[in-house]
Design a protein around this nucleic acid. Structure first.
Lengths: 150, 150
DNA sequence: CAATTGGGGTTCCCTGAAGGAACTTCAACT
DNA sequence: AGTTGAAGTTCCTTCAGGGAACCCCAATTG
């Protein structure tokens, strides 16, 4: 085996990594989210190799995370988030929150979120869909689900 | 340049990827979280190359996400989550939620979370720390923060 | 209407990282 | 003294990322 295939593991983390776990993919997603949607823009903004950018975009399109869409009568394309991709942004927001807290240092966070509902600057927090209380690593027990292996 | 260094970018996503973005790292973290904490156990459970496992564990320890701790008078060690690492599990939980929804298929989720506070099975959702309302990709504006580049 | 421009890729070579198996070390147990 | 088992290390092969050059196509320009 060359590079291990995470997609076949009975684990939603591994499967998710199969979609956006390759190097650069989360940053491509971030850029598309904030409006950097074209090949040339992405390549220039990220400093990524054109070859790898092509591979990542194709993979994200295949996985249904991005849609490749013409924006001109010339052969010009932009990449936009699908619903599946938009929901992946939750992941980016949590990554941002953690990075802001643990890695930003003196300078502080590079980007802030203003929440439409309240107009305030803030970060997202994980809360239980049932009771609305915080739901972090230490607040849950893990149980085997219907899709468990063996 | 060989492999691009994400750690120096002015982006908390890129910086977080520098810590856990390498292949296998999130799965190592998951295993440690659920109690697979020793070298041999991790190697067997993941099917990862021993060489790469060594590299990942060292990196995660250097980054302060895991702590390497003796558990015997013989030279035996286990890896445990630090506070910094425990907070990273938020990321794993969100990955799990997305994977459950979009990739689990017929079989359903392999793992379920039971929330201590309410005793129910459920998934975490992102909510604003200020107002408590849902906070997803489409609910925020992005603003430059104090650590923004140039 | 030939030449230019620019977006969106492909192709090529080189190096570095992942896979995998064999080997090493060290303390305790037999 | 020999064996065991955890925890790595070493070595070789193959594959993926970096980087630069090249290609294709439609519209605009001279």
């Amino acid at each position: 085996m060359q590079r291990t295939d995470f997609g076949k593991m009975a684990c939603s983390i591994a499967r998710t990594l199969d979609v956006i776990g390759e190097p650069w993919s989360p940053l491509v997603l971030r850029d598309v989210w904030v409006g950097v949607t074209r090949f040339e823009q992405l390549q220039a903004d990220l400093g990524i190799s054109r070859k790898v950018l092509t591979e990542r975009l194709n993979h994200l399109v295949e996985q249904g995370v991005l849609e490749r869409r013409p924006y001109d009568r010339r052969p010009r394309y932009e990449y936009v988030l699908t619903e599946k991709g938009t929901e992946l942004v939750d992941l980016l927001m949590v990554m941002t929150g953690w990075g802001d807290k643990w890695l930003a240092g003196e300078a502080g966070p590079p980007v802030l979120y203003r929440h439409h509902a309240c107009g305030e600057i803030g970060n997202p927090e994980l809360r239980c869909t049932h009771c609305g209380n915080p739901m972090h690593a230490t607040d849950v027990d893990l149980l085997p689900g219907p899709g468990a292996a063996g």
